[in-house]
Every structure is written in C-alpha cells, then in structure tokens.
C-alpha cells in the first residue's frame, strides 16, 4: 500500500520524467494514480470530480515537466498538487459556503484493521470504542492522521500539503495519541493481553524477515 520506492528511486524516476521520458511518465501514472485517487476520493467523495482532477493534474504535469522542481517523495509532491487542484474545484462549487474546512464532503473513516496478531475476543468491543472516539475527531485532524500514520509522510510534508503550520500537525498528533492512551491502555493491559502481544510481535517480525 505504501510506495515501495526508496527516496533515491523517487528522485531517479522524477528526474527521468522531467527530462522528457515518456516511459517514466507512464510509470508515474501506474504507480501513483490509484493512490492519488484514494486520497482524492476521501477528500471530495465524488468519483467524477476526482477523475477530472487527476485528468487535469497529469496533463498539467506532462505539459510543464521541464519546469517542475525536484523531489525525493513523489507521493508528497503529487498529493500536494492534487489537493490544491481539488480545493480549487470545491471552492468554485461552494462559493456561498462559509465553512473554513472547504472539503465539507470529506470522510476519513478509521477502519477496524484485521486483527490477526492479537486475540480477537479481547479487542473486538474495545477496539470499536477507540475507533469511534478517533472518528469523532474533526475531519481536518483526521486528514492529518491519514497523511502521517497511513501514508507515512513527515510532519513537514503533511503541513505543506494541508497548508497549515507544523505546530497544528504536532497538536493533532498529540490529541490522537491522548485519545488512544485513554481508551486503549486499560483494555490492552487487561489479563494476558501482553502475552498475546508478545506472540503477535514475534509473528510480525517473522513475517517481515520472511519478506
């Protein structure tokens, strides 16, 4: 799900593209269009508008390729570009709406992740509670968490994409962690949980090591 390219590979692919390689452009589309679509769809919840946004974005990239700046994280670069484009679209559509978070159709929903590591019975109810708490956070904050904890972007990059200060990003992360601490620790510390966590962790590493 996260892009498998190293920063060096990002730079290489991006530079090839900027130098006019059609193959690199094609590769950009193959690697990032679905990922961009998912982010865009969460923001705007309208297939047509997301597709139009991607259409314009890739045309623009192609046209301006010789004048684009360098990057070692293409996902970050394209997320920022797509978000601005979609922001413009919704601004145009919501001229009369005064909501300061313009993506008023956005939905960032925390999903219960498939728990294979830890015993299922223990977490089921508790997990849903934590998820419900996290889902109550404002959309803007959930977008920040999405970028950092799901897409693996840095605080700086998340701040730039969302055009907010890095301090707001830190604050949001603190709020989320406080929520988690309040609701998770009690449940996870209940009898035997750490044992299963330990076993879970062992399995986790074995999986990583085996590829």
């Amino acid at each position: 799900m996260n892009s498998p390219l190293t920063p060096a590979e990002h730079t290489l692919l991006w530079n090839d593209f900027r130098n006019g390689s059609q193959a690199a452009f094609s590769q950009l589309y193959e690697l990032f269009s679905a990922d961009l679509y998912r982010y865009g769809y969460n923001l705007i919840r309208n297939r047509q508008l997301v597709e139009d946004g991607l259409h314009e974005l890739f045309l623009h990239l192609h046209e301006k390729r010789h004048r684009l700046g360098p990057t070692d994280n293409i996902r970050f670069y394209l997320y920022r570009a797509l978000r601005r484009r979609l922001l413009d679209t919704v601004t145009r559509l919501n001229k009369l709406d005064s909501d300061d978070y313009l993506f008023n159709q956005a939905e960032f929903l925390i999903k219960p992740y498939e728990q294979t590591l830890v015993e299922e019975q223990l977490i089921e109810q508790q997990k849903l509670l934590v998820i419900a708490q996290l889902n109550k956070l404002p959309k803007r904050q959930k977008e920040i968490l999405y970028l950092i904890y799901m897409k693996g972007l840095t605080y700086q990059q998340a701040a730039e994409i969302m055009e907010i200060t890095i301090k707001s990003v830190y604050n949001t992360v603190n709020v989320a962690l406080t929520t988690l601490r309040a609701h998770v620790r009690t449940s996870f510390d209940q009898g035997g949980a750490l044992w299963s966590l330990t076993i879970g962790l062992l399995i986790y590493f074995t999986k990583i090591l085996l590829g």
Partner: peptide, 14 residues
C-alpha cells in the same frame, strides 16, 4: 505499534 496500526483509514479503490 498497536497504536499506529489502529490509526488506519478506509479507502475506496478506483
């Protein structure tokens, strides 16, 4: 690790 794995979002695939 458990915390971070909890903060995962649903997504719609094209």
């Amino acid at each position: 690790i458990e915390y971070i794995k909890t903060i995962q979002f649903s997504e719609t695939d094209p």
